[in-house]
Design a protein around this nucleic acid. Sequence first.
DNA 1: CTGTCTAGTCCTATTTTTGAACCAGTCTGG
DNA 2: CCAGACTGGTTCAAAAATAGGACTAGACAG
Lengths: 150, 150
Amino acid sequence: MKRSGFAEAECPVARALDAIGDVWSLLIVRDAFDGLRRFGDFQKNLGIAKGMLSARLRRLVELGVLEPVPASDGSAYQEYALTKKGRDLFPVVVSLRQWGEANLYARGEAHSDLVDEAGLPVGKLVLPSRAGRPLAWSETRVRKSGARKR
Amino acid sequence: MKRSGFAEAECPVARALDAIGDVWSLLIVRDAFDGLRRFGDFQKNLGIAKGMLSARLRRLVELGVLEPVPASDGSAYQEYALTKKGRDLFPVVVSLRQWGEANLYARGEAHSDLVDEAGLPVGKLVLPSRAGRPLAWSETRVRKSGARKR
DNA sequence: CTGTCTAGTCCTATTTTTGAACCAGTCTGG
DNA sequence: CCAGACTGGTTCAAAAATAGGACTAGACAG
């Protein structure tokens, strides 16, 4: 009866982690944002065991994060493309990136950078209030289970 | 030689995941944002095995995400408080929350909500350009390893 | 003091992940 | 059009991580 997890949790953080909260899944998604689409590319780039990759891709497809599409180069092979749900993970990957940049590198140590089309580094993620004012952690709280909608 | 991971990766996403990219660590951090501070509270709330929790807390303290502090109620026990580095994970937790909310619940299904001090739901995380304009995924790219910053 | 609570450690059984070998279709060069 | 290489997997054994329960030392309350 596989009682692994948090798939039914009321907390969206727990549910999200249950779905994609493992290193390989998130690295696959990161690579997908970088334009990788094929089994072999993911495997080569990540150095992941093929069985793991196979299982993870299957899971991500089941979840609707990736979808299998015919190869863009006309060959008979298949590619994996991000769906809307997958593209929605962009802030997750960016937040990890920004935390890593800010907290895990020695001064001057080399790391890749996220830049805009002009090549300028992007700013930090901002959490706006309904009114558009940036909110700090201490100005927020979690309200338990409101289902008032409908 | 513990070749576990990505601790030396050039990509900040990989490094971040190596540090805190597992379900328990992130749930502990989420609970810490919710105000939990004691071993027993985490253990009760998460249902995590005590050995696991012990190991995870030790790791998070080593990493500088949490720090042990004397109990706030004057007892001889110890508490775990978020450091600056830990509070910096706020966008990571929020991005997971928002993705989960938007993609993992059926219409009308109950879930907790992140609200501001007035009780209003917060907006979505925004990635601004240097100039302050919100950027979509497709308007960004990753530039490999720039260390030019002295 | 005694019993209970907190915050762990330690051990075993189970599950997950790794890594290597294997295999069936696809493509490519000659 | 055939041989060999490449792609995208599957399978299996061994190694590593995790779960869960028993146990314990110090704190605290009565």
